[in-house]
Structures are given as structure tokens and as C-alpha cells.
Write a protein that binds this DNA or RNA. Structure first.
Lengths: 242, 242
DNA sequence: GCCGATGAGATTGTCGACAATTTGCAAAGG
DNA sequence: CCTTTGCAAATTGTCGACAATCTCATCGGC
């Protein structure tokens, strides 16, 4: 009995939530493997698939209308992204990120976004610099208007702009991949108003360093900003988990 | 020359090199998708499959003894790693990294290995610190003994030790993935004896910073070391292609 | 001779059927 | 009541066949 329960937790963890059984997608045409992967990714992001949950192929087939091969391809692709794990005869399940792993992801983010901020300060286009200021304005209005949902989205855009404006596509890809497992944490803004104000201050300091052309300062500020973000996250986790 | 490069980028370019037609692997059991992926990866690393070359499924089936589904799975996995590109009805081909992309990869490496060096200086185990010195001794003997092949391998181990000793497996994974497309460049040591001596000097400076407990200095030195490495590579490329 | 149509061969994409394995249930035994 | 054992259903892994598409050599018209 205890053994079966243990095994259940190890392999499978059968959280068989009943699915909304809309038989297929709106469009009649068969979806590609990439589209199925998007469908799953989106559901994980939205919290419809929770970490540890098992992703049964037949359910995804019913949900997307794709064939089994396509669904399997999609799951394999997602495994490559580190979003799900696939075990022999156990199928795919949403991967859970430990706090330690989140810490390591944030350290990598600090390094990569830090260097991106420096490169942005050095040779970003005038258009990107302007857009950065605009986004910052939007973020400030979110804080005063208390719109945490919009804040999460704009904040993501702001960080993305720093990277894309730095002109390094490779770093952009790596960061996007790194962010996937913690996407829910990033956007499910359970941040306090105080944290939002702190973030805004950090952003302002970074922008000022960029506009002053001080790449080193921009990098240092960005790093500190991201590491502070992890501290906040970590303290929240401690409150929640004990 | 330029034309072939262009054709390589376009779809196909049937570089139908005849394969060594050993019918299957030594062991009789069927290889898994992961093993097939390793087989392909290894051949790309060794230069047996050159960038732009088309990877025909049937050839890989003959070479590995795996079934078509497994081979296709393996290719898809490799696409996820960024090693090959798959186009509709064009199949898989070894992805070519442009000089600009290599530059971006080196920039990312500089950021990640830099922060790893800092973390190594802060809290690496005594065993890892000792091993770092040992590897450095091996590298020095390579330079004096003129053994570029062994130098490439040991150099890889040295850099890997910095990362693993820093205690961040996420960064380790990212770096491993980043290095795959440029693996041939890293290990096909066409480096001059002078470059090797410069690298050794860099390494010594990094080790000294680490032993002095100066994380900031270690990071800066590591960054400069990697960016110098790219400069060397870039100048070689100009000699060859320009 | 040059150029486009055309058809065969080669290569890849898709799918469903079958085999291997696990899971959940239910009955037998203590 | 608890544990164990066996079986049926569910789920996943594997494979080969067929369809769709591309490549390239050939042929006929101009």
C-alpha cells in the first residue's frame, strides 16, 4: 500500500484532472508539431498544467486534434527545452524546478542580462533607447495604477528589449529558454507594491547608466536588480513553504 | 568558394560523400534515439559531417542500425540543440555558424564563464581548487611538449572544472549546449604556439585571482581570456576566408 | 542549341496497427 | 483488516506501409 503510493509519486503521480472536452481546435486543419508544443507550453504557463502533472498523449490528442506522432514530437521537443521530463513507459510530465535550480537560473540571468545591459549602453540604436524609456513610463503608470498583470507583461518586454537591443540573438535564445520553467513565477505577479517600486527604481538607475553611456555601471545595476528579484522570490517561497 | 558557401546555406547542396558502409554497429541490440543522436553528434564533432552537409535518414539508418523513427527522433533532438536544421521535405543538415553567431556565442560564454570564475573563487571545494592546479600543470607541459591535441582536451576540462566547481549546473548545461556548434573550432587546435602561451598566461592569472579570493578579478580575467580567444579565432578566419 | 514539360527515382512526412509495459482493481489467503 | 497475487484496461514504445514532395535526367518543341 505504502509502496504503491510511493511508486505513484515517483513515476506518474496520477493527477487525472478532467479536461474540458472541446473535441478539437477551432480551425479544421491539423495542427503541426510546433503548434501542439505551443498549446502545451501555453497551458503550462497559464497554470492549467501544474508541475508534476502527467501529460497523457490521448488527452493532448483530444485537446489539439493532432495525430499521435505529432503529439509525441511536440512532447519530445518540450523535453529538449527542459519544460517536461519523459520517462520510459511513464510518459511526459511537467518538470518541477527546485528552489536551488531557480537560484541557478537567476544567476545565469544575472550574468547574461548584465552583459546585455552593458552592450545595450554601448551600441543600441536610438529607436531602442527611446522605446526603453516608453516602456519604463508604462511600468511607472502600472505601479501607481496598481495593475500587476500589465506590469508583469511590460516588465518582460522591458527586459527583452535590453537583450534584443544589445544585438545578441544567441543570448536572447538562451534567456528565453531559461525563463520557460520559471515563467509562472515571473508573470503570476504576487509581488508586493513595495517590490514593484523597488524594481522601478532599479530600472531607472539602469536607464540612467545607459543614457550616460556607462556600460560598466549599467551591467552592475542590472545584475543587482536581478539578484534582488531572486531574493524577493526566495523570501516569498520561505513564507509559503515553511 | 563563395558560391559553395551560398549553396550550402540554401537547401540541400548534395554533398553526397560516400559513407564507410559498415552495415551496423558492433553490438547487435538496436540503439536508442539518444545513442543515435550521440553517434551523429560525435561525427559532427570529428568533422566527418561538415557544416551544410545534408543528413540523409537512410544513411544514418545504415550507419547506426536504428529504425527510421529512432533516427528521426534523434535528428529532431539535435535540432532542439541547435546542431542541425530541419526543413520541410529537405530533411536535416548540419547547421553552419556564421562568424557573427560565433561572436555572439563567445560573448555569452564570456558572461557565463566569467560569473562562474567568480563563484568558483568564492566557494569552490579544496579538491576542485587542487584539481585546477593539476590541470594547469598538464596544460603547461603540453605547451612545452608541443601537443596541441592534448592541449585542446585538457583546456576543455579546465574550463569545465571552473563551471562545475562553481556549483551551477544550469550554467553548465547552457555552456555545453553553446559549445556544440563551435566544438570543432575549439578542439581542432589550429592555434599557434604563441596563442597557447598567451592562453597559459591568462589561466595563470585567473588561478592566482582565485587563490587570492578575489572574485571580481577572477571574473574580469576570465572574460578577457575568452574574448581574446575569439579575437584569435576571428583573425584566423579572416586569413582563411578573406 | 536552348528551354520548359514530364516522368521516374529518391527522400521525407504522416498515420495507424501491434508489442511492451505499467496501472488499477479485485479476489484469494493469512 | 491487511497483504499479496493475478488479470484487464490504459498507456506508451516501435515499426513498417503509404502519401506527399523534391531532384534530376530525359525528351520534345522552338
Amino acid at each position: 500500500m505504502m509502496l504503491t503510493k510511493l511508486l505513484t509519486i515517483l513515476c506518474g503521480f496520477g493527477q487525472k484532472l478532467v479536461m474540458s472536452t472541446q473535441p478539437a481546435d477551432d480551425r479544421s486543419r491539423a495542427p503541426t508539431a510546433a503548434e501542439i508544443a505551443d498549446w502545451i507550453r501555453e497551458r503550462i504557463r497559464r497554470g492549467r498544467f501544474v508541475p508534476g502533472q502527467r501529460l497523457v498523449e490521448i488527452d493532448i490528442i483530444r485537446g489539439t486534434g493532432g495525430s499521435r506522432s505529432k503529439v509525441r514530437d511536440a512532447l519530445q521537443r518540450l523535453e529538449g527545452e527542459g519544460l517536461v521530463t519523459i520517462e520510459e513507459f511513464c510518459g511526459a510530465s511537467v518538470r518541477t524546478a527546485s528552489l536551488e535550480e531557480v537560484r541557478q537560473i537567476y544567476r545565469a540571468r544575472a550574468a547574461l542580462e548584465g552583459i546585455s545591459a552593458a552592450d545595450f549602453a554601448r551600441h543600441a540604436s536610438a529607436g531602442d533607447r527611446l522605446r526603453l524609456r516608453e516602456l519604463h513610463g508604462g511600468l511607472e503608470s502600472c505601479v501607481s495604477g496598481n495593475a500587476p498583470e500589465r506590469f508583469g507583461r511590460l516588465n518582460g518586454e522591458w527586459h527583452g528589449l535590453i537583450v534584443s537591443g544589445s544585438g545578441n540573438v544567441v543570448i536572447g535564445d538562451v534567456l528565453q529558454r531559461l525563463n520557460v520553467p520559471i515563467h509562472r513565477l515571473l508573470f503570476e505577479s504576487f509581488y508586493s507594491a513595495e517590490r514593484l517600486r523597488t524594481a522601478i527604481d532599479d530600472h531607472r538607475a539602469i536607464i540612467e547608466a545607459i543614457e550616460a553611456g556607462d556600460a560598466t555601471l549599467a551591467e552592475a545595476a542590472m545584475r543587482r536588480h536581478i539578484e534582488d528579484g531572486f531574493e524577493t522570490l526566495s523570501s516569498i517561497d520561505h513564507e509559503v513553504n515553511g
